[in-house]
Design a protein around this nucleic acid. Structure first.
Ligand code: NAD
Ligand code: NAD
Lengths: 243, 243
DNA sequence: TGTTCATTGTGACGTATTTCACAACATCGT
DNA sequence: ACGATGTTGTGAAATACGTCACAATGAACA
Protein backbone atom coordinates (compact mmCIF):
# COMPACT_ATOMS: atom_id res chain seq x y z
CA UNK A 1 0.00 0.00 0.00
CA UNK A 2 1.27 3.45 -0.81
CA UNK A 3 2.94 4.75 2.26
CA UNK A 4 4.09 7.86 0.53
CA UNK A 5 2.10 11.01 0.65
CA UNK A 6 2.52 12.42 -2.79
CA UNK A 7 1.23 15.81 -1.98
CA UNK A 8 0.13 17.27 1.25
CA UNK A 9 -3.06 19.13 0.50
CA UNK A 10 -1.59 22.57 0.63
CA UNK A 11 1.20 21.66 -1.69
CA UNK A 12 -1.20 20.88 -4.45
CA UNK A 13 -1.61 24.55 -4.51
CA UNK A 14 1.93 25.42 -4.01
CA UNK A 15 5.07 23.57 -4.70
CA UNK A 16 7.57 21.39 -2.99
CA UNK A 17 6.64 18.07 -1.62
CA UNK A 18 7.92 15.62 0.86
CA UNK A 19 8.28 12.08 -0.20
CA UNK A 20 10.43 9.57 1.59
CA UNK A 21 13.94 8.22 1.85
CA UNK A 22 17.06 9.82 0.38
CA UNK A 23 17.50 7.55 -2.59
CA UNK A 24 20.91 7.94 -4.17
CA UNK A 25 23.48 5.28 -4.65
CA UNK A 26 22.70 1.67 -4.96
CA UNK A 27 19.63 0.18 -3.49
CA UNK A 28 18.36 -3.31 -2.99
CA UNK A 29 18.06 -3.42 0.71
CA UNK A 30 15.34 -3.84 3.18
CA UNK A 31 13.71 -0.48 3.17
CA UNK A 32 11.20 0.57 0.55
CA UNK A 33 7.85 -0.55 1.64
CA UNK A 34 6.78 0.81 -1.72
CA UNK A 35 8.51 0.05 -4.96
CA UNK A 36 6.06 0.33 -7.75
CA UNK A 37 8.98 0.13 -10.13
CA UNK A 38 7.61 3.46 -11.01
CA UNK A 39 6.78 5.66 -8.12
CA UNK A 40 10.15 4.77 -6.71
CA UNK A 41 11.19 7.59 -4.48
CA UNK A 42 11.29 10.22 -7.12
CA UNK A 43 10.55 13.61 -5.62
CA UNK A 44 7.28 15.07 -6.75
CA UNK A 45 8.99 18.37 -7.39
CA UNK A 46 10.94 16.62 -10.11
CA UNK A 47 7.81 15.14 -11.61
CA UNK A 48 6.24 18.56 -11.71
CA UNK A 49 9.14 19.92 -13.71
CA UNK A 50 8.97 17.28 -16.40
CA UNK A 51 5.98 18.78 -18.24
CA UNK A 52 7.97 21.98 -18.68
CA UNK A 53 10.83 20.02 -20.15
CA UNK A 54 8.43 18.36 -22.54
CA UNK A 55 6.89 21.64 -23.56
CA UNK A 56 10.28 23.23 -24.13
CA UNK A 57 11.51 20.25 -26.12
CA UNK A 58 8.42 20.47 -28.30
CA UNK A 59 9.19 24.06 -28.99
CA UNK A 60 12.73 23.09 -30.01
CA UNK A 61 11.33 20.43 -32.29
CA UNK A 62 9.07 23.04 -33.87
CA UNK A 63 12.19 25.04 -34.60
CA UNK A 64 13.84 22.04 -36.18
CA UNK A 65 16.56 21.70 -33.58
CA UNK A 66 17.79 18.13 -33.23
CA UNK A 67 20.07 18.21 -30.24
CA UNK A 68 20.34 20.23 -27.09
CA UNK A 69 22.70 20.48 -24.15
CA UNK A 70 21.53 20.65 -20.58
CA UNK A 71 22.99 24.12 -20.51
CA UNK A 72 20.92 25.36 -23.42
CA UNK A 73 17.76 23.75 -22.14
CA UNK A 74 18.42 25.25 -18.75
CA UNK A 75 18.75 28.72 -20.19
CA UNK A 76 15.51 28.37 -22.08
CA UNK A 77 13.66 27.19 -19.03
CA UNK A 78 15.38 29.34 -16.48
CA UNK A 79 16.89 26.72 -14.20
CA UNK A 80 20.39 25.37 -13.74
CA UNK A 81 21.86 22.79 -16.06
CA UNK A 82 22.79 20.65 -13.09
CA UNK A 83 19.18 20.48 -12.05
CA UNK A 84 18.09 19.23 -15.43
CA UNK A 85 20.79 16.59 -15.50
CA UNK A 86 19.98 15.49 -11.98
CA UNK A 87 16.27 15.34 -12.72
CA UNK A 88 16.79 13.20 -15.79
CA UNK A 89 19.26 10.98 -14.00
CA UNK A 90 16.48 9.75 -11.75
CA UNK A 91 15.17 7.88 -14.76
CA UNK A 92 18.24 6.82 -16.66
CA UNK A 93 20.91 8.12 -19.00
CA UNK A 94 19.55 9.83 -22.06
CA UNK A 95 22.39 12.06 -23.21
CA UNK A 96 25.77 11.71 -24.79
CA UNK A 97 28.90 13.31 -23.47
CA UNK A 98 30.09 16.08 -25.67
CA UNK A 99 26.84 16.13 -27.69
CA UNK A 100 24.00 16.71 -25.28
CA UNK A 101 20.57 15.19 -25.79
CA UNK A 102 18.68 14.22 -28.92
CA UNK A 103 15.65 16.45 -28.76
CA UNK A 104 13.13 14.06 -30.22
CA UNK A 105 14.34 11.09 -28.25
CA UNK A 106 14.40 12.98 -24.97
CA UNK A 107 10.98 14.40 -25.59
CA UNK A 108 9.54 10.97 -26.28
CA UNK A 109 11.29 9.53 -23.28
CA UNK A 110 10.01 12.10 -20.84
CA UNK A 111 6.53 11.77 -22.28
CA UNK A 112 6.73 8.05 -21.72
CA UNK A 113 7.84 8.58 -18.16
CA UNK A 114 4.85 10.84 -17.55
CA UNK A 115 2.58 8.34 -19.33
CA UNK A 116 1.71 10.92 -21.94
CA UNK A 117 2.12 8.36 -24.70
CA UNK A 118 -1.58 7.72 -24.65
CA UNK A 119 -4.81 9.70 -24.42
CA UNK A 120 -6.39 10.22 -21.06
CA UNK A 121 -10.13 10.60 -20.94
CA UNK A 122 -11.49 12.98 -18.36
CA UNK A 123 -14.83 13.83 -16.79
CA UNK A 124 -15.70 17.45 -16.12
CA UNK A 125 -18.02 18.24 -13.23
CA UNK A 126 -19.80 21.57 -12.94
CA UNK A 127 -20.90 23.12 -16.21
CA UNK A 128 -21.34 26.74 -15.19
CA UNK A 129 -19.34 29.52 -16.75
CA UNK A 130 -15.99 28.00 -15.95
CA UNK A 131 -17.10 24.52 -16.97
CA UNK A 132 -18.17 25.79 -20.38
CA UNK A 133 -14.83 27.52 -20.84
CA UNK A 134 -12.93 24.39 -19.93
CA UNK A 135 -15.05 22.20 -22.17
CA UNK A 136 -14.27 24.49 -25.08
CA UNK A 137 -10.57 24.80 -24.36
CA UNK A 138 -8.57 23.06 -27.04
CA UNK A 139 -5.31 23.01 -25.14
CA UNK A 140 -6.09 19.71 -23.45
CA UNK A 141 -6.52 17.66 -26.57
CA UNK A 142 -3.19 18.78 -27.88
CA UNK A 143 -1.66 17.34 -24.74
CA UNK A 144 -2.81 13.77 -24.30
CA UNK A 145 -6.06 14.72 -22.59
CA UNK A 146 -9.61 14.62 -23.76
CA UNK A 147 -12.80 15.60 -22.05
CA UNK A 148 -15.00 12.56 -22.47
CA UNK A 149 -18.09 13.49 -20.50
CA UNK A 150 -19.67 16.53 -18.86
CA UNK A 151 -21.73 16.54 -15.68
CA UNK A 152 -23.84 18.97 -13.74
CA UNK A 153 -26.29 18.62 -10.89
CA UNK A 154 -28.63 21.20 -12.38
CA UNK A 155 -31.33 19.35 -14.29
CA UNK A 156 -31.90 22.43 -16.42
CA UNK A 157 -28.43 22.11 -17.84
CA UNK A 158 -28.65 18.40 -18.43
CA UNK A 159 -29.02 17.63 -22.12
CA UNK A 160 -27.38 20.81 -23.34
CA UNK A 161 -24.61 20.04 -25.73
CA UNK A 162 -21.21 21.66 -25.25
CA UNK A 163 -18.46 21.19 -27.75
CA UNK A 164 -20.06 18.01 -29.01
CA UNK A 165 -20.82 16.44 -25.64
CA UNK A 166 -24.13 16.42 -23.83
CA UNK A 167 -24.23 17.49 -20.22
CA UNK A 168 -25.24 14.53 -18.11
CA UNK A 169 -26.76 14.37 -14.64
CA UNK A 170 -24.42 13.85 -11.72
CA UNK A 171 -26.18 10.66 -10.78
CA UNK A 172 -24.66 9.07 -13.87
CA UNK A 173 -21.11 10.06 -12.95
CA UNK A 174 -19.91 7.02 -11.06
CA UNK A 175 -21.30 4.55 -13.49
CA UNK A 176 -19.92 6.41 -16.50
CA UNK A 177 -16.48 6.56 -14.98
CA UNK A 178 -16.47 2.88 -14.19
CA UNK A 179 -17.86 1.86 -17.53
CA UNK A 180 -15.40 3.94 -19.49
CA UNK A 181 -12.56 3.40 -17.08
CA UNK A 182 -11.99 7.12 -16.62
CA UNK A 183 -9.35 8.00 -14.04
CA UNK A 184 -9.04 11.76 -14.39
CA UNK A 185 -11.59 14.30 -13.22
CA UNK A 186 -11.95 18.06 -13.29
CA UNK A 187 -13.93 19.91 -10.65
CA UNK A 188 -15.52 23.21 -11.64
CA UNK A 189 -18.40 23.32 -9.22
CA UNK A 190 -18.98 26.00 -6.62
CA UNK A 191 -16.73 25.88 -3.61
CA UNK A 192 -19.33 24.34 -1.31
CA UNK A 193 -20.05 21.43 -3.62
CA UNK A 194 -16.46 20.59 -4.43
CA UNK A 195 -15.92 18.04 -1.68
CA UNK A 196 -19.06 16.08 -2.43
CA UNK A 197 -18.07 16.07 -6.08
CA UNK A 198 -14.62 14.82 -5.18
CA UNK A 199 -16.21 12.04 -3.15
CA UNK A 200 -18.21 10.95 -6.17
CA UNK A 201 -15.14 11.04 -8.37
CA UNK A 202 -13.38 8.84 -5.87
CA UNK A 203 -16.32 6.48 -5.87
CA UNK A 204 -15.99 6.35 -9.64
CA UNK A 205 -12.36 5.34 -9.33
CA UNK A 206 -10.65 8.63 -10.03
CA UNK A 207 -6.88 8.78 -9.60
CA UNK A 208 -6.17 12.37 -10.55
CA UNK A 209 -8.26 15.47 -9.92
CA UNK A 210 -7.74 18.92 -11.32
CA UNK A 211 -9.56 21.19 -8.91
CA UNK A 212 -10.61 24.70 -9.86
CA UNK A 213 -12.66 25.29 -6.72
CA UNK A 214 -10.91 27.19 -3.93
CA UNK A 215 -11.07 24.47 -1.31
CA UNK A 216 -8.76 21.85 0.07
CA UNK A 217 -10.16 18.49 -0.93
CA UNK A 218 -9.86 15.44 1.28
CA UNK A 219 -9.16 12.41 -0.83
CA UNK A 220 -7.59 8.98 -0.30
CA UNK A 221 -3.84 8.66 -0.63
CA UNK A 222 -3.90 7.06 -4.03
CA UNK A 223 -5.57 10.10 -5.56
CA UNK A 224 -3.46 13.02 -6.74
CA UNK A 225 -4.95 16.49 -6.66
CA UNK A 226 -3.67 19.73 -8.16
CA UNK A 227 -5.37 23.03 -7.73
CA UNK A 228 -5.78 25.87 -10.13
CA UNK A 229 -6.11 28.97 -8.05
CA UNK A 230 -5.35 32.31 -9.64
CA UNK A 231 -6.53 34.22 -6.60
CA UNK A 232 -4.03 32.58 -4.29
CA UNK A 233 -1.36 33.14 -6.90
CA UNK A 234 -2.11 36.85 -6.95
CA UNK A 235 -2.36 37.03 -3.19
CA UNK A 236 1.10 35.61 -2.79
CA UNK A 237 2.64 37.97 -5.31
CA UNK A 238 1.52 41.21 -3.73
CA UNK A 239 3.72 40.41 -0.76
CA UNK A 240 6.72 41.26 -2.91
CA UNK A 241 5.45 44.47 -4.43
CA UNK A 242 7.49 47.43 -3.33
CA UNK A 243 5.50 50.54 -3.60
CA UNK B 1 17.30 46.59 -5.15
CA UNK B 2 16.29 43.09 -4.23
CA UNK B 3 19.17 40.78 -4.80
CA UNK B 4 17.06 37.73 -4.31
CA UNK B 5 15.51 35.98 -7.23
CA UNK B 6 12.13 35.27 -5.92
CA UNK B 7 11.06 32.92 -8.59
CA UNK B 8 12.96 30.43 -10.62
CA UNK B 9 11.13 30.55 -13.90
CA UNK B 10 10.26 26.91 -14.00
CA UNK B 11 8.76 26.97 -10.61
CA UNK B 12 6.18 29.47 -11.66
CA UNK B 13 4.89 26.77 -13.83
CA UNK B 14 5.27 23.80 -11.65
CA UNK B 15 2.02 22.84 -10.22
CA UNK B 16 -1.08 24.61 -11.27
CA UNK B 17 -0.05 27.72 -9.57
CA UNK B 18 3.20 28.43 -8.05
CA UNK B 19 6.57 29.82 -8.51
CA UNK B 20 9.60 30.84 -6.84
CA UNK B 21 12.28 29.73 -4.61
CA UNK B 22 14.56 31.96 -2.77
CA UNK B 23 17.69 32.31 -4.76
CA UNK B 24 20.64 30.09 -4.29
CA UNK B 25 23.47 31.39 -6.38
CA UNK B 26 21.88 34.58 -7.39
CA UNK B 27 23.14 37.07 -4.92
CA UNK B 28 26.66 35.99 -5.11
CA UNK B 29 28.70 38.67 -3.45
CA UNK B 30 28.67 40.11 0.01
CA UNK B 31 26.31 37.61 1.55
CA UNK B 32 22.77 38.48 2.16
CA UNK B 33 22.54 42.17 2.48
CA UNK B 34 18.91 42.46 1.77
CA UNK B 35 16.63 43.38 4.55
CA UNK B 36 13.69 45.18 3.12
CA UNK B 37 12.18 44.93 6.56
CA UNK B 38 9.76 42.92 4.62
CA UNK B 39 11.25 40.60 2.09
CA UNK B 40 13.55 39.48 4.85
CA UNK B 41 14.66 36.01 3.90
CA UNK B 42 11.28 34.50 4.30
CA UNK B 43 11.02 31.42 2.12
CA UNK B 44 8.71 31.90 -0.80
CA UNK B 45 7.12 28.56 -0.05
CA UNK B 46 5.88 30.10 3.19
CA UNK B 47 4.49 33.13 1.39
CA UNK B 48 2.64 30.85 -0.96
CA UNK B 49 0.97 29.09 1.92
CA UNK B 50 -0.35 32.25 3.50
CA UNK B 51 -3.25 32.76 1.07
CA UNK B 52 -4.52 29.33 2.04
CA UNK B 53 -4.38 30.27 5.66
CA UNK B 54 -6.34 33.42 4.89
CA UNK B 55 -8.92 31.53 2.91
CA UNK B 56 -9.37 28.97 5.65
CA UNK B 57 -9.62 31.64 8.35
CA UNK B 58 -12.31 33.38 6.32
CA UNK B 59 -14.25 30.19 6.20
CA UNK B 60 -13.99 29.88 9.97
CA UNK B 61 -15.19 33.45 10.33
CA UNK B 62 -18.17 32.62 8.13
CA UNK B 63 -18.96 29.84 10.57
CA UNK B 64 -18.76 32.24 13.48
CA UNK B 65 -15.74 30.64 15.06
CA UNK B 66 -13.67 33.10 17.08
CA UNK B 67 -10.57 31.18 18.01
CA UNK B 68 -8.58 28.38 16.52
CA UNK B 69 -5.57 26.31 17.51
CA UNK B 70 -2.74 25.54 15.15
CA UNK B 71 -3.81 21.93 15.40
CA UNK B 72 -7.34 22.60 14.24
CA UNK B 73 -6.22 24.88 11.44
CA UNK B 74 -3.69 22.28 10.37
CA UNK B 75 -6.33 19.60 10.16
CA UNK B 76 -8.56 21.81 8.05
CA UNK B 77 -5.76 22.64 5.67
CA UNK B 78 -4.03 19.30 5.65
CA UNK B 79 -0.61 20.24 6.97
CA UNK B 80 1.09 19.83 10.33
CA UNK B 81 0.42 22.16 13.21
CA UNK B 82 4.14 22.72 13.58
CA UNK B 83 4.35 24.02 10.08
CA UNK B 84 1.66 26.56 10.66
CA UNK B 85 3.27 27.75 13.86
CA UNK B 86 6.66 27.94 12.21
CA UNK B 87 5.26 29.81 9.22
CA UNK B 88 3.58 32.38 11.40
CA UNK B 89 6.61 32.73 13.59
CA UNK B 90 8.51 34.23 10.68
CA UNK B 91 6.36 37.29 11.14
CA UNK B 92 5.78 37.54 14.87
CA UNK B 93 3.74 36.07 17.68
CA UNK B 94 0.06 36.09 17.07
CA UNK B 95 -1.29 33.37 19.32
CA UNK B 96 -1.82 32.81 22.99
CA UNK B 97 -0.65 29.77 24.83
CA UNK B 98 -3.51 27.63 25.91
CA UNK B 99 -5.97 29.50 23.70
CA UNK B 100 -4.72 29.38 20.17
CA UNK B 101 -5.29 32.22 17.74
CA UNK B 102 -8.05 34.78 17.47
CA UNK B 103 -9.48 34.03 14.07
CA UNK B 104 -10.32 37.58 13.07
CA UNK B 105 -7.08 39.01 14.32
CA UNK B 106 -4.96 36.36 12.65
CA UNK B 107 -6.83 36.73 9.41
CA UNK B 108 -6.32 40.48 9.41
CA UNK B 109 -2.70 40.08 10.31
CA UNK B 110 -1.90 37.65 7.54
CA UNK B 111 -3.79 39.80 5.08
CA UNK B 112 -1.72 42.76 6.16
CA UNK B 113 1.47 40.74 5.70
CA UNK B 114 0.40 39.86 2.19
CA UNK B 115 -0.61 43.48 1.57
CA UNK B 116 -4.18 42.43 0.99
CA UNK B 117 -5.46 45.28 3.12
CA UNK B 118 -5.97 47.35 0.01
CA UNK B 119 -7.33 46.92 -3.50
CA UNK B 120 -4.91 46.10 -6.28
CA UNK B 121 -5.83 47.30 -9.71
CA UNK B 122 -4.84 45.05 -12.56
CA UNK B 123 -4.54 45.24 -16.30
CA UNK B 124 -5.64 42.30 -18.41
CA UNK B 125 -3.93 41.73 -21.76
CA UNK B 126 -5.44 39.51 -24.42
CA UNK B 127 -9.23 39.61 -24.68
CA UNK B 128 -9.91 36.39 -26.51
CA UNK B 129 -12.00 33.63 -25.02
CA UNK B 130 -9.93 33.30 -21.90
CA UNK B 131 -9.64 37.06 -21.47
CA UNK B 132 -13.40 37.43 -21.55
CA UNK B 133 -13.79 34.70 -18.96
CA UNK B 134 -11.26 36.33 -16.67
CA UNK B 135 -12.81 39.76 -17.08
CA UNK B 136 -16.14 38.34 -16.02
CA UNK B 137 -14.84 36.31 -13.11
CA UNK B 138 -16.02 37.79 -9.86
CA UNK B 139 -13.61 35.91 -7.65
CA UNK B 140 -10.91 38.55 -7.96
CA UNK B 141 -12.92 41.42 -6.58
CA UNK B 142 -13.79 39.47 -3.51
CA UNK B 143 -10.08 39.13 -2.88
CA UNK B 144 -8.48 42.56 -3.00
CA UNK B 145 -8.08 42.56 -6.76
CA UNK B 146 -9.86 44.49 -9.43
CA UNK B 147 -9.46 44.44 -13.16
CA UNK B 148 -9.08 48.11 -14.02
CA UNK B 149 -8.40 47.98 -17.75
CA UNK B 150 -8.57 45.56 -20.65
CA UNK B 151 -6.22 45.45 -23.62
CA UNK B 152 -5.98 43.66 -26.92
CA UNK B 153 -3.88 44.14 -30.00
CA UNK B 154 -6.76 43.33 -32.28
CA UNK B 155 -8.28 46.62 -33.43
CA UNK B 156 -11.57 44.85 -34.09
CA UNK B 157 -11.93 44.10 -30.42
CA UNK B 158 -10.96 47.56 -29.28
CA UNK B 159 -13.97 49.46 -28.06
CA UNK B 160 -15.99 46.42 -27.11
CA UNK B 161 -17.18 46.64 -23.57
CA UNK B 162 -16.68 43.69 -21.23
CA UNK B 163 -18.08 43.71 -17.75
CA UNK B 164 -18.22 47.48 -17.76
CA UNK B 165 -14.77 48.12 -19.17
CA UNK B 166 -13.91 48.99 -22.75
CA UNK B 167 -11.18 47.02 -24.47
CA UNK B 168 -8.30 49.37 -25.24
CA UNK B 169 -5.52 49.09 -27.78
CA UNK B 170 -2.22 47.69 -26.62
CA UNK B 171 -0.46 50.89 -27.56
CA UNK B 172 -2.18 52.55 -24.61
CA UNK B 173 -1.00 49.95 -22.12
CA UNK B 174 2.20 51.49 -20.84
CA UNK B 175 0.76 54.93 -20.45
CA UNK B 176 -2.35 53.65 -18.68
CA UNK B 177 -0.31 51.62 -16.25
CA UNK B 178 1.91 54.55 -15.42
CA UNK B 179 -0.92 57.00 -15.14
CA UNK B 180 -2.97 54.77 -12.88
CA UNK B 181 0.02 53.33 -11.09
CA UNK B 182 -0.99 49.77 -11.86
CA UNK B 183 1.51 47.14 -10.74
CA UNK B 184 -0.28 43.89 -11.46
CA UNK B 185 -0.87 42.42 -14.90
CA UNK B 186 -2.56 39.35 -16.32
CA UNK B 187 -1.44 37.80 -19.58
CA UNK B 188 -4.04 35.93 -21.61
CA UNK B 189 -2.57 36.30 -25.06
CA UNK B 190 -1.52 33.46 -27.32
CA UNK B 191 1.69 31.74 -26.39
CA UNK B 192 3.77 33.45 -29.05
CA UNK B 193 2.77 36.93 -27.97
CA UNK B 194 3.20 36.41 -24.26
CA UNK B 195 6.80 37.57 -24.02
CA UNK B 196 6.25 40.79 -25.93
CA UNK B 197 3.26 41.45 -23.73
CA UNK B 198 5.34 40.83 -20.64
CA UNK B 199 7.92 43.27 -21.93
CA UNK B 200 5.27 45.94 -22.28
CA UNK B 201 3.96 45.25 -18.82
CA UNK B 202 7.48 45.65 -17.49
CA UNK B 203 7.79 48.92 -19.38
CA UNK B 204 4.60 50.01 -17.70
CA UNK B 205 6.09 49.28 -14.30
CA UNK B 206 4.49 45.95 -13.52
CA UNK B 207 5.66 44.12 -10.40
CA UNK B 208 3.48 41.02 -10.51
CA UNK B 209 2.31 39.03 -13.51
CA UNK B 210 -0.25 36.28 -13.59
CA UNK B 211 0.53 34.36 -16.75
CA UNK B 212 -2.00 32.08 -18.38
CA UNK B 213 0.08 31.47 -21.50
CA UNK B 214 2.15 28.28 -21.53
CA UNK B 215 5.56 29.91 -21.81
CA UNK B 216 8.38 30.79 -19.52
CA UNK B 217 8.57 34.56 -19.37
CA UNK B 218 11.84 36.38 -18.98
CA UNK B 219 11.37 39.33 -16.69
CA UNK B 220 13.61 41.45 -14.47
CA UNK B 221 14.28 40.26 -10.95
CA UNK B 222 11.95 42.68 -9.29
CA UNK B 223 8.97 41.21 -11.11
CA UNK B 224 7.18 38.19 -9.70
CA UNK B 225 5.48 35.81 -12.09
CA UNK B 226 3.09 32.95 -11.39
CA UNK B 227 1.72 30.72 -14.04
CA UNK B 228 -1.66 29.14 -14.34
CA UNK B 229 -1.16 25.99 -16.31
CA UNK B 230 -3.76 23.25 -16.06
CA UNK B 231 -2.13 21.21 -18.78
CA UNK B 232 1.15 20.89 -16.92
CA UNK B 233 -0.80 20.07 -13.79
CA UNK B 234 -2.54 17.22 -15.55
CA UNK B 235 0.65 16.03 -17.18
CA UNK B 236 2.36 15.70 -13.84
CA UNK B 237 -0.51 13.76 -12.29
CA UNK B 238 -0.69 10.97 -14.83
CA UNK B 239 2.74 9.84 -13.72
CA UNK B 240 1.15 8.52 -10.55
CA UNK B 241 -1.81 6.75 -12.08
CA UNK B 242 -1.63 3.03 -11.55
CA UNK B 243 -3.58 1.25 -14.15
C1' DT C 1 -2.87 33.13 44.61
C1' DG C 2 -1.84 28.60 43.15
C1' DT C 3 -2.74 24.54 40.35
C1' DT C 4 -4.20 22.59 36.16
C1' DC C 5 -4.66 22.67 31.43
C1' DA C 6 -3.96 23.61 26.62
C1' DT C 7 -1.29 25.39 23.27
C1' DT C 8 2.22 28.54 21.59
C1' DG C 9 6.98 29.68 19.74
C1' DT C 10 11.33 27.91 18.78
C1' DG C 11 16.04 25.51 19.31
C1' DA C 12 17.74 21.38 17.70
C1' DC C 13 17.46 17.96 14.57
C1' DG C 14 16.30 15.39 10.33
C1' DT C 15 15.03 15.10 5.62
C1' DA C 16 14.65 16.84 0.94
C1' DT C 17 16.46 19.34 -2.76
C1' DT C 18 19.84 21.88 -5.18
C1' DT C 19 24.40 22.90 -6.53
C1' DC C 20 29.34 22.02 -7.06
C1' DA C 21 32.79 20.05 -9.41
C1' DC C 22 35.01 16.54 -11.88
C1' DA C 23 36.06 11.94 -13.92
C1' DA C 24 34.44 9.69 -17.86
C1' DC C 25 33.73 9.58 -22.42
C1' DA C 26 31.89 10.56 -27.35
C1' DT C 27 33.04 13.19 -31.25
C1' DC C 28 35.88 15.84 -34.33
C1' DG C 29 39.80 17.63 -36.83
C1' DT C 30 44.13 16.68 -38.13
C1' DA D 1 45.45 7.32 -33.90
C1' DC D 2 45.33 11.01 -30.84
C1' DG D 3 44.75 15.10 -28.45
C1' DA D 4 41.40 18.83 -27.90
C1' DT D 5 36.82 19.86 -26.91
C1' DG D 6 32.31 19.77 -24.95
C1' DT D 7 29.08 17.81 -22.15
C1' DT D 8 27.15 14.08 -19.43
C1' DG D 9 26.06 11.67 -14.95
C1' DT D 10 26.83 11.68 -10.23
C1' DG D 11 29.33 11.50 -5.54
C1' DA D 12 29.85 14.92 -2.09
C1' DA D 13 28.71 19.28 -0.12
C1' DA D 14 25.67 22.93 0.61
C1' DT D 15 21.38 24.73 1.42
C1' DA D 16 16.48 24.88 2.24
C1' DC D 17 12.66 23.14 4.42
C1' DG D 18 9.95 20.39 7.71
C1' DT D 19 9.26 18.18 12.21
C1' DC D 20 10.04 17.08 17.07
C1' DA D 21 9.62 18.07 21.48
C1' DC D 22 9.43 20.93 25.31
C1' DA D 23 9.95 25.14 28.26
C1' DA D 24 7.18 29.04 28.71
C1' DT D 25 2.98 31.01 29.53
C1' DG D 26 -2.03 32.70 29.39
C1' DA D 27 -6.60 31.42 31.00
C1' DA D 28 -9.79 29.15 34.09
C1' DC D 29 -11.06 28.08 38.29
C1' DA D 30 -10.75 26.60 43.07
N1 NAD E 1 -9.55 28.48 -10.70
C1 NAD E 1 -10.09 29.30 -11.62
O1 NAD E 1 -9.41 29.78 -12.54
C2 NAD E 1 -11.50 29.64 -11.51
C3 NAD E 1 -12.07 30.55 -12.39
C4 NAD E 1 -13.43 30.78 -12.28
C5 NAD E 1 -14.15 30.11 -11.32
N2 NAD E 1 -13.52 29.27 -10.46
C6 NAD E 1 -14.25 28.50 -9.47
O2 NAD E 1 -14.91 27.49 -10.20
C7 NAD E 1 -16.15 27.20 -9.63
C8 NAD E 1 -17.23 27.42 -10.65
O3 NAD E 1 -17.27 28.75 -11.09
P1 NAD E 1 -18.36 29.22 -12.14
O4 NAD E 1 -18.14 30.66 -12.40
O5 NAD E 1 -18.40 28.31 -13.28
O6 NAD E 1 -19.71 29.06 -11.29
P2 NAD E 1 -21.17 28.76 -11.84
O7 NAD E 1 -22.10 29.03 -10.72
O8 NAD E 1 -21.37 29.45 -13.14
O9 NAD E 1 -21.18 27.21 -12.16
C9 NAD E 1 -21.22 26.21 -11.19
C10 NAD E 1 -21.92 25.01 -11.80
O10 NAD E 1 -21.74 23.90 -10.94
C11 NAD E 1 -22.97 23.21 -10.88
N3 NAD E 1 -23.02 22.44 -9.64
C12 NAD E 1 -23.38 22.86 -8.41
N4 NAD E 1 -23.29 21.86 -7.53
C13 NAD E 1 -22.86 20.78 -8.22
C14 NAD E 1 -22.59 19.46 -7.85
N5 NAD E 1 -22.71 19.06 -6.58
N6 NAD E 1 -22.19 18.61 -8.81
C15 NAD E 1 -22.08 19.03 -10.07
N7 NAD E 1 -22.31 20.28 -10.48
C16 NAD E 1 -22.71 21.14 -9.56
C17 NAD E 1 -24.02 24.27 -10.96
O11 NAD E 1 -25.23 23.72 -11.40
C18 NAD E 1 -23.39 25.23 -11.97
O12 NAD E 1 -23.77 24.88 -13.27
C19 NAD E 1 -16.24 28.09 -8.42
O13 NAD E 1 -15.77 27.35 -7.29
C20 NAD E 1 -15.28 29.22 -8.71
O14 NAD E 1 -14.74 29.75 -7.54
C21 NAD E 1 -12.23 29.02 -10.56
N1 NAD F 1 -4.09 28.59 -18.26
C1 NAD F 1 -5.34 28.37 -18.65
O1 NAD F 1 -6.20 27.97 -17.88
C2 NAD F 1 -5.69 28.65 -20.04
C3 NAD F 1 -6.97 28.38 -20.51
C4 NAD F 1 -7.26 28.73 -21.80
C5 NAD F 1 -6.31 29.32 -22.59
N2 NAD F 1 -5.06 29.50 -22.10
C6 NAD F 1 -4.03 30.19 -22.86
O2 NAD F 1 -4.41 31.56 -22.88
C7 NAD F 1 -4.06 32.14 -24.09
C8 NAD F 1 -5.27 32.72 -24.76
O3 NAD F 1 -6.22 31.71 -25.03
P1 NAD F 1 -7.58 32.06 -25.76
O4 NAD F 1 -8.36 30.81 -25.90
O5 NAD F 1 -8.24 33.22 -25.09
O6 NAD F 1 -7.05 32.51 -27.21
P2 NAD F 1 -7.74 33.54 -28.21
O7 NAD F 1 -7.07 33.38 -29.50
O8 NAD F 1 -9.24 33.42 -28.12
O9 NAD F 1 -7.38 34.98 -27.62
C9 NAD F 1 -6.12 35.56 -27.70
C10 NAD F 1 -6.34 37.06 -27.73
O10 NAD F 1 -5.09 37.71 -27.56
C11 NAD F 1 -5.01 38.79 -28.46
N3 NAD F 1 -3.62 39.10 -28.72
C12 NAD F 1 -2.78 38.51 -29.60
N4 NAD F 1 -1.56 39.07 -29.54
C13 NAD F 1 -1.64 40.02 -28.61
C14 NAD F 1 -0.70 40.94 -28.10
N5 NAD F 1 0.56 40.96 -28.53
N6 NAD F 1 -1.10 41.79 -27.14
C15 NAD F 1 -2.38 41.77 -26.70
N7 NAD F 1 -3.31 40.92 -27.14
C16 NAD F 1 -2.93 40.06 -28.09
C17 NAD F 1 -5.75 38.33 -29.68
O11 NAD F 1 -6.20 39.45 -30.42
C18 NAD F 1 -6.90 37.57 -29.05
O12 NAD F 1 -8.00 38.41 -28.79
C19 NAD F 1 -3.37 31.05 -24.89
O13 NAD F 1 -1.98 31.19 -24.65
C20 NAD F 1 -3.88 29.78 -24.27
O14 NAD F 1 -2.94 28.73 -24.36
C21 NAD F 1 -4.76 29.22 -20.85
Amino acid sequence: MPAIARTTPIERQIESVSSATPSYGVDMDLDDEEDELNNLNIPDVVIRRLPIYVRTLHSLIEHGQVSVSSEELATLIGVTAAQIRRDLSYFGKFGKQGRGYDVGYLSNTVERILKLDRTWNMVLCGMGKLGHAIANYRGFMRSSFEIAALFDSDENLVGEEVNGHPIRPMRDLVETMRREHIQVGIIATPRKNAQETADLLVAGGVQAILNYAPVILKVPDHVTVREIDPVSALQSMTYYIED
